[in-house]
């Protein structure tokens, strides 16, 4: 499994304009997402990519849709293809298995992120105030199972209850948990990340 750390502020300045600190407009979102997808495609196989918002001053709806929603949509589509082809065969066939953790997310990003996730019926794993949590469209039982799995680190379905297996498979199809060593792990739960950098300042300081 390959871990990436992608600082959105750096990608924005590197791909769009060195002076920008705001993720606004669709073309900007497309450029940033394309760069992220390129990095993931180069790695291939199973990847966990940390998308870091710490240096992003403002995120608008259009950019959130192009980056957060479209990355997750494609990942979930890959999951559906893998389920159809069964996981092992899918790995051998090179179907990508990409997971995401959105880091450095705070109030100034959440309105846009929550709106686009709701629009598409998606959810993400986000580190808010240093703690991993689910953001977006999540049923109460999904959230409870994910939180419990997060506490355990990794576990068999039985450890979460007799009826947990279909629930975990549903979360796996949504790319919120991943299969590990015959059990399951919450995406982001076992990542050891360095402390978050300070908030973006950009021109808005």
């Amino acid at each position: 499994m390959i871990h990436h750390h992608i600082d959105l502020g750096s990608v924005l300045r590197g791909t769009v304009c060195a002076l920008y600190s705001n993720l606004v407009t669709r073309p900007t979102g497309v450029a940033v997402r394309t760069e992220i997808e390129r990095a993931i495609a180069e790695a291939g196989g199973r990847t966990v990519t940390v998308i870091d918002f710490s240096q992003v001053t403002l995120l608008d709806f259009s950019c959130a849709d192009e980056i957060v929603a479209k990355l997750m949509l494609r990942s979930v589509e890959d999951a559906a293809r893998a389920i159809e082809a069964r996981a092992q065969e899918a790995r051998e066939a090179g179907v990508p298995e990409g997971y995401f953790v959105f880091r450095g997310v705070c109030d100034r990003h959440l309105d846009a992120i929550e709106a686009v996730l709701e629009r598409h019926g998606l959810a993400i794993v986000a580190q808010v105030d240093g703690r991993a949590q689910l953001v977006g469209e999540v049923a109460a039982e999904e959230r409870a199972a994910w939180d419990r799995l997060c506490e355990l680190g990794a576990a068999d379905a039985e450890a979460l209850g007799a009826d947990a297996a279909p629930l975990l498979e549903r979360l796996a199809a949504r790319r919120l948990v991943m299969p590990v060593d015959g059990g399951w792990a919450a995406v982001g739960a076992r990542l050891e990340l360095p402390p978050e950098p300070g908030p973006a300042r950009g021109r808005a300081a």
Binding site: L19, V24, T57, L58, D107, R203, A204
Partner: peptide, 30 residues
């Protein structure tokens, strides 16, 4: 970028809008 330089102060101090409103204001403008 330009609006952020002034909007934080003016929207907060003159209009009494909280920081979340100033962020949403910039998003709406965009």
């Amino acid at each position: 970028g330009q609006i952020q330089e002034r909007s934080q102060t003016i929207l907060r101090d003159q209009l009494g809008l909280d920081s979340r409103a100033t962020i949403r204001f910039s998003m709406a403008l965009s």
